[in-house]
Design a protein around this nucleic acid. Structure first.
Lengths: 341, 341
DNA sequence: GTTAGCACTCTCATTAGTTGAGTGCTAATA
DNA sequence: TATTAGCACTCAACTAATGAGAGTGCTAAC
C-alpha cells in the first residue's frame, strides 16, 4: 500500500485543495496550484491509478477528483505533519492558560473556546470524574426553621451539599453534636476504610438522632455513587454552519441535534489510550450519526484520571491544523493540572 | 381602531391559517376552511379593507394575504384567548414539578425542557440572583499541604467556596482558630450589620494571622459583589430549525449565534413588570437581531426577587398556545418557590 | 514514460414557456 | 346598499430546452 513520491505529492495536493475549496479537484488545478513539473495529462493518469487504489473518487465522469475516506486516512497517516501553532496563537493560549480562572468550569470553558476559535471546528473537553480519597469535613448547618444544609468536603476540594428537612424536635445544638460525631469518625478517613463497623459505630453513638443520621448517611452514599460521572464541555458547535457540506437543512438538524444531546456525544468519543493525538475519519466512527464527521482528539491525565479534548469537524477537515492544535493544548492543560495540585 | 365582528373573524381565520401553513392565505381558503357564510368575493373586499388598515399585507399582487405585525398585535390583544394546557400536558407538568429535583439547576432545566417540548419553541428561564441576608457559617478546611478551602454559607443556603494557598507557617489549628473567630463575629449577622467596626475587630483579634484574615475578607467581599448576576437557562433552541422562515442559512446562523450568546440574550428580554403574560412581536423588540422573532414571557417572584420565563419563536407563532403555557408554568413555579422556603 | 490534442460527458446557469392560484374590478342580483 | 358571479389580469413557481464550461479518457506522437 505504499505510494511513490509523485503519487503522494498528487494525493497531498488534491487533499489540500479539496479541503480548502470543497470542490472536486481537476488535473490542471493540481499542476498549476502546486507547481508540479509534469503535465495535466500525466496527473490524469496518476489520478486514475489513485482512484483505482481507492484513494480518490469521482462525483461524476466529468468532474475532478475528491479524496475518499481512505485517501484522507493515508494522508493523515503517511503524508501530513501536524502544524504548530503560530506565534500569536501560542501567545493567546498562554494567556488563556495563565488567566486566573480558578473555577474549573471556567478554565475548561476557555480552553474549549480557544480550541474552536483557532480551528473553526466544534471542540469538546471531557473532564473525568475526580475520585476522592478522604473526607475532610462534614457539617450540618442550620438554615432557619426546620431546614439545614448538609455539607461534605473531600480532600480534592469537592463540595457536596444538600438541603434537608430537620425534624423540629432537633435544635441547633443537636445538629452540631451530630456534625462533631461524624467528623470524629470520618475525618481523614479513606473511603475504603469506612466499613460497616464504623457506620455502625455512628448509629450507635447517635441512637436517639436516628433520623438525622440516616439522612446524612444517605447523602454520603449518594456522593459515593455519583462519583462516576464525567463531564462534557462543548464549544463552537455553530462552526459547522460554515461548512458547505452541511448547507442541507436536514443534515444540519441531525448534527446539531446530536451535539445537543451531551450524553450521546460522550458515547461517540472512543476510549483514549495514550498521549498521542488520534484521528477517526467518517465511517471509522462508531455511531451512524457522525459518519459524516471526523474526530481529532487526545487524552490527558488529571489527578490520575483520564480526560480528553478534541475537535469535531467535517471529513474535509484541516487535519494538520486540528491535530497540531489538539496536541499543543493537550500538553498545556496537562501541565496546568500537574502544577495545580 | 375597532373592527366589526366579521372583520375580526376574517382576521382571526387568516392568522390561524397562516400560523399553521406559513403560506399566504387566499379568500377561498378563508371561506372554506372556516366555514364562513359569505362568498370569497366578499371576503376579498374585507381583506382589501383590512390591508388598507394595516392589519394584512400582500407578498405580491397575485398572492393571498398574510397578517402584518400590527395584525398579529390586534389578534393577540383583542381576539385570541390563551389556550389551556391539555390534560396530558397538565399531568406532565405536575410530574415535572413534583419530581424531587432538589438541585435548583436541574429543576429549572426541566421546566425549560417542558416549555419547549410542549410548544416547540425555544424557551428561557431567568433565575434572579438570590440576595442573602445573613451568614450562617464560615469554615476554613485544610486540604493537604499548603492548601485550604474557604467556605461560606448564607441563610439562603448558597455556598461560596474557593481554594486558597495557605502560608506553610500556619497549621491546621490556626485555621480552626480563624474559623472560630470569624464565626463568632459574623454568624447570623446581617450584611448591613457588618460594618467597619466588626471587621476591625476581626483584624485585631487575629493580628498575627493577618494574611489569612485578609484572604478570607477578600473572599467575603467577592461574595457580596457577585451577588448581582442572574442566570439564564435556554432550552429547545433547535426548534427554530423547524420554522420555514429560517430555512435560509444566513438567517439561521444569525439567530443561533444570538441564542448562543447568553449575555446578549439577557439584554433582549424586557423588564418584567407584573404577573401577566406579556408578548412582544417582531419589531417591537429592542434588538435588531430579533426583529424577526416574537417573545412570550412572564415574570415570577422567588424570595422577593423577580425572575422570568418565556418563549422565543417566529413572528408566525401560536401565541394562544404559547401564552397559555407560559401563564400556567409561571403560576406553577411560583407556587413551588413559595412552598419551598 | 510523458504529453498534446481532441472527442466526449456531465453539471450548472440561463432562458422561455406554461401553469395555477389568487386578485381586483364590473355588472348583475337580492 | 350589500353581496356575489364572472372574468381579465398578475405573478411566482415549475418545467424543458439550450449552451457554456470544466474536466475526463483515449490515442497517437514525442
Amino acid at each position: 500500500m505504499t505510494l511513490d513520491e509523485r503519487k503522494r505529492k498528487i494525493l497531498e495536493s488534491i487533499v489540500r485543495d479539496y479541503v480548502e475549496t470543497a470542490e472536486p479537484v481537476g488535473s490542471r488545478a493540481v499542476v498549476k496550484k502546486y507547481a508540479l513539473k509534469i503535465s495535466p495529462a500525466t496527473v490524469r493518469n496518476e489520478m486514475a491509478d489513485l482512484e483505482e487504489m481507492g484513494y480518490l473518487e469521482q462525483p461524476h465522469t466529468s468532474a475532478g477528483r475528491i479524496p475518499s475516506e481512505i485517501g484522507f486516512r493515508y494522508f493523515v497517516d503517511f503524508i501530513m505533519e501536524k502544524q504548530k501553532l503560530s506565534d500569536e496563537e501560542t501567545e493567546l493560549l498562554n494567556k488563556v492558560i495563565s488567566s486566573n480562572a480558578d473555577e474549573l468550569n471556567e478554565f475548561i470553558g476557555r480552553i474549549g473556546y480557544f480550541l474552536s476559535q483557532i480551528t473553526n471546528y466544534a471542540s469538546f473537553v471531557i473532564v473525568p470524574s475526580i475520585k476522592f480519597k478522604e473526607f475532610k469535613s462534614m457539617q450540618l448547618i442550620p438554615l432557619g426553621k426546620d431546614k439545614a444544609l448538609i455539607l461534605l468536603v473531600t480532600d480534592t476540594g469537592m463540595i457536596i451539599h444538600r438541603r434537608i428537612d430537620v425534624p423540629s424536635s432537633l435544635n441547633d445544638e443537636d445538629l452540631e453534636q451530630v456534625s462533631a460525631v461524624f467528623n470524629r469518625v470520618l475525618k481523614n478517613k479513606k473511603i475504603s476504610e469506612i466499613n460497616r463497623t464504623s457506620l455502625q459505630q455512628l448509629r450507635e453513638g447517635l441512637k436517639h438522632k436516628r433520623l438525622l443520621v440516616d439522612l446524612a448517611l444517605e447523602e454520603i452514599d449518594n456522593l459515593l455513587k455519583n462519583t462516576g460521572d464525567e463531564k462534557l464541555f462543548l464549544s463552537g458547535t455553530l462552526n459547522i454552519l460554515n461548512e458547505p457540506e452541511f448547507k442541507d437543512l436536514e443534515k444540519l438538524r441531525k448534527i446539531l441535534t446530536l451535539l445537543e444531546a451531551n450524553e450521546v456525544l460522550k458515547g461517540i468519543i472512543p476510549d483514549v489510550t495514550g498521549d498521542e493525538v488520534d484521528i477517526t475519519i467518517g465511517h471509522e466512527n462508531k455511531l451512524d450519526d457522525i459518519k459524516e464527521l471526523s474526530l481529532v482528539y487526545a487524552g490527558y491525565k488529571s489527578l490520575g484520571e483520564t480526560g480528553a479534548i478534541g475537535l469535531l469537524g467535517p471529513i474535509r477537515m484541516e487535519y494538520w491544523k486540528a491535530a497540531g492544535t489538539v496536541e499543543t493544548v493537550r500538553a498545556a492543560i496537562e501541565e496546568v493540572f500537574r502544577q495545580n495540585r
